[in-house]
Design a protein around this nucleic acid. Sequence first.
RNA 1: GCGGAUGUGGCGAAAUUGGCAGACGCACCAGACUUAGGAUCUGGCGCCGUGAGGCGUGUAGGUUCGACCCCUAUCAUCCGCACCA
Length: 986
Amino acid sequence: MEYNFRAIEQKWQQHWKDSETYKVSNNSPRPKCYVLDMFPYPSGAGLHVGHPLGYIASDIYARFKRLKGFNVLHPMGYDSFGLPAEQYAIETGQHPATTTEKNIATFRSQLDKIGFCYDWSREVRTSDPKYYKWTQWLFLQLYNSYFCNTEKKARPIADLIHKYATKGAMPKTGTPIPGTHFTADEWNGYSTAQQEEILAKRRLAFSAYGEVNWCEALGTVLANDEVVNGVSERGGHPVEKKKMRQWYLRITAYADRLLEGLDRVDFSDAMKEMQKNWIGKSQGAEIDFEINGTSDVLKVYTTRPDTILGVDFMVIAPEHELVAQITTADQKEEIEKYLAYVKSRSERERMADVKQITGCFTGAYALNPFDGRKIPIWIAEYVLAGYGTGAIMAVPCGDQRDFGFAKHFNIPITNIIGEHYNGEEANATKEAILENSGFLNGMVMKDAMGVAIDKLEEMGIGKRKVNYRMRDAGFSRQRYWGEPFPIVWKDGVAYPLDEKDLPLELPHVDTYGPGPEGEGPLANIASFVETPDGLRETSTMPGYAGSSWYFLRYMDPQNDQTFCDRTVSDYWNQVDLYVGGTEHAVGHLLYSRLWTKVLYDLGLIGFDEPFKKLMNQGMIQGSSRFIFKVIDLYFDNRNWPLVNHNIPILLISSAKYEQLNNGTDEEKRKVKEQIVSHLIKYNFIETLREDDPSETTDRENLLGKIDEFVIIKTHVDVNIVDGVELNIAEFKKWKNGEYANAEFIFEEDGKYICGVEAEKMSKSKYNTVNPDVLVEKYGADTFRMYEMFLGPVEMSKPWDTKGIEGVHRFLRKLWRLFFDELKGKVWNEQKATDAELKVLHRTIKKIEGDTESFAFNTAVSAFMMCVNDLTDIKCNKKEILSPLLVLLTPYAPHIAEELWAALNNSGSVLDAAYPVFDGKYLVEAEKEYPISINGKMRTTINIATNAEEAEVKQIVLANEVVQKWLEGNEPKKIIFVKNKMVNVVV
RNA sequence: GCGGAUGUGGCGAAAUUGGCAGACGCACCAGACUUAGGAUCUGGCGCCGUGAGGCGUGUAGGUUCGACCCCUAUCAUCCGCACCA
């Protein structure tokens, strides 16, 4: 009886399906655990071996938690709205719904083969109207909410309207600013459009004019990731900014809470840093500078108010509103030239040469409020209109960019930091003692910051200000394949749809081209756009709309009354473990955190961080293989008549290629000679004879002439390479026999060794490995364990199929502990010995710990070691094997279930699992303590684990062996370190 | 430039977090059983050395009885962000 993984896996997968083994209930006396994978976008390419890595890890954890007695929610679904389906539709005319359906079917069949324990009854698809009904509904919640700055939370917009209507919006102190402040009476007198305009400034989902990436050549709006280096990803056409009405989510209102929430979740440092960086909070001050001879003020933002006496010039963004106003007549021409130059530069150029220093003097001066110095005002493209106030005070001795600018335009530099400034480069220290700084003289810079701000506030020309780099999130796309907005426009005012009219279904379209003025394809469908109440919004929601809340829908997927019942979300609560790639660090993760916070504020759910722990699986890179083709230029260049029409492609192996490029002269000559003799063999000689008999065929002579060849490094399919050795037979069949008569220059051992390089997995690089093939060849259990065995889940690594044999061998070896090919059943019910129990206990302890801490790779190693040991001591006892199968279930569920059934006629693994993890099997063995003398390790002694420190010392001293080693030297010191070892110092 | 991470055999990697470095697997070598071996089993496998022994965790220092682990500096690779005032 041998390990027939195909039959076993099929049998159990069918069994799980038929008996709904993994269906999970929303109420259980057992503690809950929510294990979630980032749901995939079902692309047409299907899965490659990189995709399941995270799924396998979470599956192991979910199964493990189930064994430990948790009620585990482990669902899967599809993020099925998105651009690629639409692109594909444009190219082929197939409706995105059709291709999406097909792709999902492919994904599902691939996933099923790996034996996951998903509760498929909870599957969600973001493009399903039953799902996006609630995405639209949640959008309306955002639309109907505002961020209350007093309570720092979302509240219904109705509250705000009520406040405006009864109390207005007047400043606590000072004079009201028209347009910003109004009385209740004024509010009540406003038109709907006027009121809406004010409310739009507070709504969490709002529309406003904003810039989009407009590609004139394609006549369409592009998403940010479709723009690469300022040109369209497809076609490479120039892309410019265009103002269009857009929807936004007011994520900036939540900046502080998104930052603060990071302290309460278990994400990697890298992930937290990325999010912090993205939010980009900086503390500083806004300072008003009087502009000389006018009543205007120039408002700048700085994080270093302490350097205010070191300001040597001002720089404002070319787009700054004051530019036209302050430019003097003398400078007008120059400024206009500069503005024209800036405008002519595409985004791409601006990004390409950030080092280039450009700028122009406006002729105007600002006045330093403390010493009255006249400070020249410049414009320059390095100051961004969108950040801070779009104007900076430049302190060249303390900021490298300001320094470069000052040097370039010969602006004199004031030194306020004494010897910290060397005149060669700026020094951004905060530790220097200020000089030339008036009232700040003698203070340490970091202390002076507060003093300076206090003074500015006192003078009424500055205030503390926190700035964020993060912008509000653009929420509309001029595309078809996304959720339609439940919004109707009338007279320039947006009106939300009534809840009972949801979902607003996506209408069928025949073409996916953009509408007039670059609107989405929906604009072309009159029957959709025109309603009795007005015109429908024609853009659709972005990909992250549906994915921002899907983890909630899994909890209550069939509910048609609400997006997720509150009692259900209270039960499942936060996702305990969320597994996915780093690529969503600032997109999806930030948005779902935002939505969760809003829903929490509105009382719709009871937690404000969605994911308790996040694990990022590393990317599995492709490990590309290369062949090296010799292209004979000498022959090609001369265009000589071909005698031999069937010239084989010549390939040299990677070591030869290496020698040819970086080898010694001797090596180079040798390889070259080999190549030349092949070239001669196949065409050269014959060409010579016919064409120019005068040329000699003398070998040396030819060698000099025919070094005109190039070697082309080409991808070869990894699947026909065994490790690095090319499978010649397969290779000759590859690509319909393109290389059928290839000639090789082999290594000395007669092998063709390919070149190797790690790259992103991609079909065009022939480095993708399909999990189906591996599952077919080795089985799902082997595949699962091998993916885990590759290394820590979080780490990126190139895929290498070679080692999978080792894991497969392990499973077969395990099988042989139960069944022999000839003898059949070999397991028995004898009583286990202490030695056997020791092996088991060690394994339980190790694997339980490793699984809990996601060290799946070392857990797999522990399994292997255990089976090796049991084989060595010829232990086939049920008492040992049975608990081992419990441990194995999460990792290799099929074989574990099969063997479990073979051992036990009744009862499930689950029933038996609790005692295994209860410590019932865990008998603490004596611990081995290493003994060292002067830090030099000598031996170990066994000491019962409960021995006290003093006892240990006595044991050491009484130990004859130790005494002998001491060789008469009295021990000076006996160090007992953390229950781990005993060290004797002499 | 800023931020984060990682450097250990031919390769993927372990090391109970300061205690016998290289577990486990791949590859490789030798042997056994075989008509055969891409099955299975046994042994070997960091480097130098016949040997005893010496040297070894990117590099250079430091702390410690003891350092892959902690500290300082430095180099290399990967990933984010990038004129953010």
